[in-house]
Simulated assay, not measured.
Amino acid sequence: MLEVAALRAGYGPIEVLRGVDLAVGPGEIVALLGSNGAGKSTLNNNVSGLYRPFGGSIRFEGEEITGASSMHIVKAGLVQVPEGRRVFPNLSVRDNLELGSYRRGKPHRAANLERVLEIFPRLRERLTQSAGTLSGGEQQMLAIGRGLMGEPRLLILDEPSLGLSPLLVEEMFGLIGRLNRQGLAILLVEQNVVQSLALAHRAYVLENGRIALSGSAADLARDPDLRRSYLGH
């Protein structure tokens, strides 16, 4: 579905990504792992059309989308749930969710809203509440629900476990697994190495703007270099 080839990107004169190759197939969870500053969010922002790459190619379902507008990319079905949730704090939960179908999914808005509320029953109880008054975990549910309202073909989740309690992290990863079993392809961008590798089919490790390791998630979980770097043993 998603093919990234020799991607170079950054900000102004600073090159952050130095020739990244990455792919996500239909029905896969692919984890993109790396520490802060490795270039994970830069990759997301270029794939999502928020920035224009310096070079390389990004294709989605066979269509070249390198440098396309974010609106075009969302309409094609590539939807990102950004790091830090970024809900609209002064709008209600319902309004936040409905905004997710602004560019895509509008004809099925009512059915999609019902589906999201079945996935996240806590949001149903808070539909009229301002999003800014929700807990961190509830805001993360809202951000993912808003992404699902756009009927994504591929969902990019940028650090969905960030700032959540261990119990909510377990719940979040369980939810991601359920969405995938329903057929949704997911690019999971995370620092949480252990749980990401337990959930994903394949994984890439990004270091200093380059892919340092890639392969099946099970193989990477056993890789001694990755264990030393990220797990401390």
Results as ranks from 00 to 15, higher is better:
152 P>S: 02
176 I>G: 07
143 A>T: 03
144 I>C: 12
179 L>D: 01
175 L>K: 06
177 G>F: 10
148 L>E: 03
175 L>V: 08
178 R>I: 13
180 N>L: 02
177 G>C: 13
174 G>W: 10
140 Q>H: 13
170 E>I: 12
168 L>A: 14
183 G>Y: 03
145 G>L: 08
143 A>M: 03
163 G>D: 13
180 N>E: 04
165 S>T: 13
138 E>A: 08
155 L>V: 01
165 S>N: 11
140 Q>W: 10
159 E>S: 09
163 G>T: 13
180 N>S: 05
146 R>S: 01
149 M>V: 04
184 L>Q: 06
146 R>A: 02
145 G>K: 06
172 M>D: 12
151 E>T: 15
164 L>Y: 11
166 P>T: 08
141 M>C: 11
180 N>R: 04
173 F>A: 13
178 R>Y: 09
182 Q>P: 00
139 Q>G: 06
161 S>G: 09
162 L>N: 05
184 L>H: 06
157 L>T: 05
153 R>P: 03
144 I>R: 13
170 E>V: 15
160 P>S: 09
168 L>F: 15
163 G>S: 14
176 I>D: 06
168 L>Q: 13
164 L>Q: 12
145 G>Q: 09
182 Q>H: 00
140 Q>G: 10
158 D>P: 03
169 V>A: 13
182 Q>M: 01
182 Q>A: 00
178 R>T: 13
148 L>V: 04
162 L>P: 05
151 E>Y: 12
142 L>K: 07
145 G>D: 10
148 L>P: 05
171 E>F: 14
171 E>G: 14
151 E>S: 15
146 R>V: 00
155 L>A: 02
177 G>D: 08
179 L>Y: 01
152 P>M: 02
157 L>H: 03
165 S>E: 11
163 G>R: 11
140 Q>A: 13
149 M>C: 05
169 V>E: 11
176 I>T: 11
156 I>M: 05
175 L>S: 05
